[in-house]
Write a protein that binds this DNA or RNA. Structure first.
Lengths: 163, 163
DNA sequence: CCGTGATACTTGACGTCGCAAGTAACCTGG
DNA sequence: CCAGGTTACTTGCGACGTCAAGTATCACGG
């Protein structure tokens, strides 16, 4: 990581400043809304969300961590909490004894369904409502590339998972 | 925070997914780069940065916290760390005995100057380089509004500050 | 001048997350 | 079949940031 001679244009700097601010505040607001309204952290919500969107509602721990953008150990703790609440069940993978699948339970799906409106409202209020007339396609394409150091998600757990 | 009937368009959902991911990963990457390259956390870097950009290089604790998007107590800890390293000095405000000003020292300014290229390179790599052909003006204007719950920064410390 | 309430910061207790080390399971070569 | 290396997850530890409570200062009313 050598010296970077090019010192950013004014436009880039202005954007960066705004983006840095959003990076600090948005997650906190989203998390706070979810916590106040549903007693659930954003990490937990996103974990349930990712599980709900996958065939079999089942994902390997590491894939789940990758999907949620957390470390594997962080995901371990979250799943422990969710399991204690009965929202997630864990089963050994049938094809790889090292792997554990996190499986969304009916109660977990129910919980997600309940929490969804709160999160939706929060997201609208803090983000969507401020999009104005930006080109969403271009915006999305750009943001998708941010901090992309070889993060390919794709993988999915084998649908079977022993109790 | 009642029910939100409108369930987001596909475009909005795709954007949100990308943005949520960036929200999780970008700060971590930026922080990690800064830590690896300079042994300094992003919070510390931004604190020094905000101080360096203000007349007198001096800011009240609470204004500094607001500027950096952290809680006041969080800023207390950061300034404690920076002070221990000699990058920041603290002085009682001359006009309000309750207020403390954080003042950037020459060593602190020097440190910021050293760390700057590392951070710049990191920011380029993780964000700027991926902007493609988005309309930066519109993008900035939108992002600037995210999570804006009455956050006006403006305030500045009185330039005097007793040793 | 002094009491009451508000304001500015600090400190203590707590929760979360990441890294590094540890354990278990897989897999390849002999 | 088993030794050695790799992979998947969990646990110990430390760093960081928030909330709540505590301390010092200010500002207003009597």
């Amino acid at each position: 990581m050598g010296k970077a001679p090019e010192p950013l244009t004014d436009r880039e700097q202005a954007f960066l400043r705004a983006f840095a601010r959003a990076l600090m505040t948005v997650p906190r607001e989203l998390d706070a809304d979810l916590m106040r309204g549903e007693g659930m952290s954003a990490s937990e919500y996103f974990t349930l969300m990712h599980l709900s969107e996958v065939p079999g509602r089942s994902l390997r721990m590491s894939d789940l961590a990758t999907a949620a953008g957390l470390s594997v150990s962080g995901m371990t703790r979250i799943v422990q909490r969710l399991e204690a609440q009965g929202f997630v069940r864990r089963g050994k993978s049938t094809c790889d004894g090292r792997s554990w699948n996190a499986v969304l339970t009916d109660a977990g799906f129910q919980r997600l369904t309940e929490a969804w409106p709160t999160h939706l409202a929060s997201v609208r209020r803090h983000v969507i409502d401020h999009l104005g007339d930006v080109d969403l396609e271009a915006f999305t394409a750009a943001v998708l590339q941010f901090a992309s150091d070889g993060c390919v998600i794709g993988e999915r757990a084998d649908s079977a998972s022993a109790g």
